[in-house]
Simulated assay, not measured.
Amino acid sequence: MNYDDIVTLLGKDNEYLFSYTSKTIDKSLLHLPSPTFVDDVFAPSNRVNQTLRNLQLIYNTGRLAGTGYVSILPVDQGIEHSAGASFAPNPIYFDPENIVKLAIEGGCNAVATTFGALASVSRKYAHKIPFLVKLNHNELLTYPNKFDQVMFGSVRDAWNLGAAAVGATIYFGSEESDRQIVEVAKAFEEAHSLGMATVLWCYLRNNAFKKDGKDYHVSADLTGQANHIGTTIQADIIKQKLPELNGGYEALNMGNSSYGKFDKRIYTELSNDNPIDLCRYQVLNCYMGRAGLINSGGASSGDESKDLFDAVRTAVINKRAGGTGLISGRKSFQKPMKDGVALLNAIQDVYLETKIDVA
């Protein structure tokens, strides 16, 4: 897709996304994706040489190689959402080899999936595309369902199967979050010592975050703080849902309740209602972009046109906000492989298009 195709796809209602100039933190203050991002941001850090090499490998793989942007295929839904529910739309993905093939043919920088999936094909593919092993999961077989991320394997096992990176999820705001923070921080320390990069799924989970008909799990201020904690435990890349609103702290502090600490300038100076500036607030909390922000692609609607529209719009917002890319799974693997490849390529086209710049 070229620039005109992208503008046409998003339509007149979204034309403002292409001309908008951020009214919050100027882009000159951000650590933006670039061909020298690893040299500029990670080389002066405490990351060991092998970690720098694996970060550079990820940034130099696929259609976005050498741009500083990343496109990652995540398929951990066989555990997170159950295999039958996830793969029924396209049963070929019960076979992990097809997951890796989709990532390669789709021009991705890396493929993210489970220990078992990557181990089953590691000797054939570990040298062909960077592996990102997901360390922990929430499983839905326990009755009644519970929601907790538990470790499914060791960092050493991920290293043994040839992983370039490890990933993990923390449910910030949940009763289990303290334990998860400790577990993941220790795992990321070990991963870095072994030379692997680290990616953190910084998700919120607490029923109290839904209030007065609004879902603050996707609020810029709360997700931004989750990003800040994730960067603090040394995630190299932060995965976060695209923000859809703001005011989480304010809403949760109404009445007699007391939640966290906030400053109203979060809403008036550091962000506003524009989706680009909502996303930029997430970037700010990733140490001004020192940890790259990748937004998730979300669920598939089952409608190919809508999936394409949503994915491309998310990519435009992420890129113009100063983000690092997209991690899109269900929208790509829950359809025929050729259509999944086309969707991944459309996302990548946004990051390759020089006319779409940082706002």
Rank of each mutant, 00 (worst) to 15 (best):
L64P: 14
S219P: 03
V166A: 06
M196W: 07
D277Y: 04
N227S: 12
A359T: 01
K319V: 00
K23H: 07
I104M: 12
K27Q: 09
V48D: 14
I25R: 07
I72A: 06
I170L: 03
P144S: 01
L242N: 01
A226K: 00
S82M: 11
L284I: 15
E269H: 07
G195C: 10
L140I: 08
S122L: 01
A187C: 13
L55N: 10
H228L: 14
L29K: 12
L141M: 13
S328D: 13
S28W: 11
L29T: 06
L10S: 11
L132D: 06
T21D: 14
V316S: 02
Q240T: 12
L141D: 12
K335F: 05
L352S: 07
D215T: 11
V218D: 01
G302Y: 01
A117E: 08
L64A: 10
K134Y: 08
G230V: 12
S300V: 01
Q56R: 15
A321G: 11
A191C: 05
K355Q: 14
P74V: 02
I79E: 05
A168T: 08
F42P: 04
I170Q: 01
F333H: 09
K338P: 00
I317H: 02
L102T: 03
L9I: 05
M196K: 00
D40N: 14
P130H: 02
Q180T: 07
L55C: 15
L135Y: 13
P275F: 12
P96L: 03
M196Q: 04
Y216V: 09
Y125D: 02
G107P: 11
S174M: 11
S86H: 12
G11T: 04
E250R: 14
V358D: 00
L32Q: 02
K27A: 08
K338A: 13
S71N: 15
G68H: 13
N253D: 04
L118A: 00
E190K: 10
L344M: 12
S332K: 06
L308C: 08
A315F: 08
E97W: 06
G340K: 00
I294P: 10
S300L: 06
T21V: 10
V218N: 02
A299N: 09
P336A: 06
G289N: 07
L64N: 05
K306L: 14
D310A: 03
D5G: 08
A43Y: 04
A165F: 02
L161T: 10
K355R: 12
L245E: 09
K23I: 09
V111F: 12
D310G: 04
R63A: 07
D178T: 14
L118K: 11
N14I: 04
D236C: 13
C286W: 05
A119M: 10
I25G: 03
K186Q: 15
N295A: 15
V38I: 15
F333W: 15
